[in-house]
């Protein structure tokens, strides 16, 4: 029953309704101003024309989009440089998001089985860690993975490096790019990049999974256990199906969050594995001042991410239907 129907036809409804309409209009205006206008600008700029040696002009040209797929020297030659960067954007975001969720799930589950007090303590701690910026976290890992101050130093001091050299494993590591002639090295590597990225979003994963897992009725798992199911079977057939949707939602959210990672990539990833976000920054704020190409890359990244999200949702809906 609507408010108007409750009050009856004779009552004076307009003032309340008018306020509602004004608030509604205001919200729309804010949304428009904060989301659509910047996006519209990016879209407009992406059609601009680059002037060599200077800046760029407003134009309506598809050259920037074309460049993304085949390079600036097309048709003389084609390059997959920018598609490769998009691939690494997706790959890092998917792998790091899945890794964070997979490791956060058991942790969060065990956390919800603890006392209220302990749970609150954990949550406050995790919320507090969110105040650490990407730069700060990357700096920390940079030190942990550095030759004179981190893991490689431990490897050398504990004799592991010498042992690796004696057993021949060291040459294998050199082939993998995880060692220089003196010691093991973890930067730059995909290992370090994914590690830092999932570390970065891990607290978010816990906080996003917590509500669903804490609402989970413990008697379900207990019932399954009393009926003779092993813990792993309980996890697979009772707990996982119950939190399938939040799991999917968390992964997708972390994926979107990670697409924009910049500092961790520039510090830990080899340039052959750099992402679209890095390239966008280089073009917009780098020495070429090529904002149109940066904008075109942003639009492509947005479309690709959107397609990924739709795909993810389809998959989760399908699995939901099949369950």
């Amino acid at each position: 029953m609507t408010v108007a129907a409750q009050i009856g036809p004779m009552a004076e409804v307009p003032p309340a309704l008018r306020w509602g309409a004004v608030v509604n209009l205001l919200l729309w205006a804010i949304a428009l101003l904060l989301c659509l206008v910047p996006f519209g600008l990016v879209l407009l700029i992406s059609f601009g024309h680059k002037v060599e040696g200077a800046g760029w002009d407003w134009a309506f040209s598809s050259e920037n989009y074309l460049r993304f797929f085949v390079g600036a020297n097309w048709p003389a030659e084609t390059t997959s440089l920018y598609l490769g960067q998009l691939y690494w954007s997706m790959r890092y975001a998917v792998v790091a998001a899945v890794l964070a969720v997979v490791t956060a799930l058991p942790f969060t589950y065990l956390m919800t089985r603890q006392s209220r007090r302990a749970q609150a303590r954990w949550l406050v701690f995790l919320l507090a860690t969110l105040s650490l910026s990407e730069v700060f976290i990357v700096m920390g890992w940079d030190i942990i993975l550095s030759n004179n101050s981190g893991l490689p130093m431990l490897f050398a001091a504990s004799g592991v490096t010498d042992w690796l050299k004696d057993t021949g494993w060291f040459d294998v590591l050199r082939d993998w790019g995880l060692a220089n002639p003196r010691n093991v090295k973890f930067k730059t590597s995909e290992f370090a990049t994914v590690l830092t990225l999932s570390y970065l979003v891990w607290p978010y994963a816990v906080i996003l999974l917590y509500p669903a897992l804490s609402r989970l009725d413990p008697s379900l798992a207990e019932a399954a256990r009393t009926m003779g199911a092993r813990p792993w079977t309980v996890a697979r057939t009772v707990i996982l199906p119950a939190v399938r949707l939040p799991l999917m939602g968390t992964t997708l959210l972390l994926f979107v969050f990670l697409l924009g990672a910049y500092v961790a990539i520039t510090v830990f990833a080899d340039p052959s594995q750099h992402t679209t976000a890095v390239s966008i920054y280089e073009n917009v704020r780098g020495s070429t001042l090529n904002a149109p190409f940066g904008a075109a890359q942003s639009v492509v990244l947005l479309v690709a991410a959107g397609a990924f999200l739709v795909l993810g949702q389809r998959l989760s809906r399908k699995s939901q239907g099949g369950a």
């Binding site: 680059k50 060599e52 040696g53 390079g71 600036a72 020297n73 390059t79 440089l81 020495s287 070429t288 090529n290």
Partner: peptide, 9 residues
């Protein structure tokens, strides 16, 4: 400056 796009890419 004159060939910045070419050299950068």
């Amino acid at each position: 400056l004159d060939k910045e796009t070419f050299i950068k890419e």
